[in-house]
Each structure stands twice: as C-alpha cells, then as structure tokens.
Design a protein around this nucleic acid. Structure first.
Lengths: 110, 110
DNA sequence: CTGACTCATCGATATTTTCCGATGAATGGA
DNA sequence: TCCATTCATCGGAAAATATCGATGAGTCAG
C-alpha cells in the first residue's frame, strides 16, 4: 500500500459514522449488510450516509454488490490488513525489537 | 483503546504532513527528533507545523521532552499498537479465520 | 543584562468536510 | 404499465480544518 492509499483509508476511518459502519461490517463478514440497514443504524439521512459509504468504498475498505434493488456492503479485511502493515512497516525494517511487542499484542487478541 | 481515542489517532494520521512526520519519528525511535528538524523537513511554516504536532500529541501518538530550548519529539509505538489492535479487535472476537491472515501478513513484514 | 534561538499560541482567512432535502435512475411487485 | 423501494448524486448551508504571520514565553550564549 502506498502513502496516498493509506491516507485515504485513514481519512475514511477517521469519522465516527464511518468507523462505526466499517466495524459493523467487519462483524458481519462475510455476509455483509444492505445499505439500508446501515443507514437505519446510523441515524443519519440516507443521502448523508450514502456519501460516507462512498468515502469508504473509494478507500477500498468497503465493496458493494448489487442484489435486487439492494446494495450489499462488505468490509475488506484485506485492505484493513494492508493498512495495518503500512503503519507497522517503518518500525519493522530492521527494527524487530520495536515491532515484536506490537505483533505480540495483536496476536494475543485472537 | 476506546472509540474516541481511536478516532483521534486516525484523524491525526489522516493528513500528509502528520503521517509523514509520524513515520519519520518511528524511523528515529528511540532517539527522537527536535521539532525544528521536523519543521525543516515538512516545508511548512513553523506555526502550522506546531499545530500539526499538537494534534499528534493530543492523540497520544507523539510525546515531547524538553531538552534545553529544543523539544525532542518521539513516536509512541505503544499507541500505534493499541490503534492496530483496536482496528483488528472486531474480526478477532471468535473470528480467528479472518484475523489469521491479517496477523500473518503483519508478522511477515518483520 | 542583552540578543539570538526554539517553540506554542493567537487572530484571520481560505479550503475542506459534513449534512440535508430534492431529484433521478434502476429494480421489482401489483 | 404504474407505483413503491432502494440508493447515488446534485446544490447549498453550516461546521471543521489548514495555513500563515505576528506575538510571547522560555532558554542559552556572550
């Protein structure tokens, strides 16, 4: 992942509504959720939430699939992983002593 | 890490200048860099960069230590780790099949 | 003490983001 | 066909963020 893509992903997640929606989608992997269901959970207007979803999609964090009139949204765990690797990369390059605790902490959560 | 703290960290990193500064600081762990050195590298005015640094500090991603007239800035790998764990937590809870590849990818970078 | 240096904060302006209602396209049921 | 449903996009208003120069506080060297 390059810097520009990472910035887009970070900016996409740096908003309460979008972060919550993304986490909700992660919890619903791999089934996904319809846009309407997410809108209802957000409490915002449909148009506003649609804009938020577009931001997440543009960042590659969410993908959509048409099913009838609905749009089924799914979180991209792959993009999330690439973002995390991007954030950790700098301390990893020949700096295992820094990255070690970081990975250990993460592994412990699983 | 709670949602509010995670949002602050994500917003802090979601800006080209701040992301670059943070990564530069990670590369200089554990020695750190003076504010002046970071300002010079950023190409922005001193006051503007100072504001950016304050955002990173408020998010707990950077800590400062006074040394003479200089302010030595250091990246908080700990906060970075907590942010990453926060992002991965949702797919980890009883969903090791999702989190596995994510952690493996990260471990491979070290 | 004086002057130079390092950095944070203030006030103002410009840009970006967020939010909404209205509109329109696409789909499916009656 | 006709209408309801689902969702994206447009236009505009409000809020937040980014940027700068100027100013001030603290520190050190002469």
């Amino acid at each position: 992942m390059d810097t520009e893509t990472a910035l887009a992903a970070l900016a996409a997640l740096a908003h309460p509504t979008r972060l919550e929606a993304f986490r909700e989608l992660v919890r619903h992997e791999p089934a996904g959720l319809s846009t309407g269901a997410l809108v209802a959970a957000s409490g915002l207007s449909q148009s506003t939430f649609s804009t938020h979803l577009a931001v997440l999609a543009r960042a590659g964090l969410v993908t959509a699939e048409k099913r009838g009139r609905q749009q089924i949204q799914r979180a991209s765990i792959d993009t999330l992983g690439r973002l995390m690797t991007f954030l950790a990369r700098d301390c990893c390059q020949g700096r295992a002593e820094l990255c070690g605790p970081l990975v250990a902490d993460l592994a412990a959560c699983c």
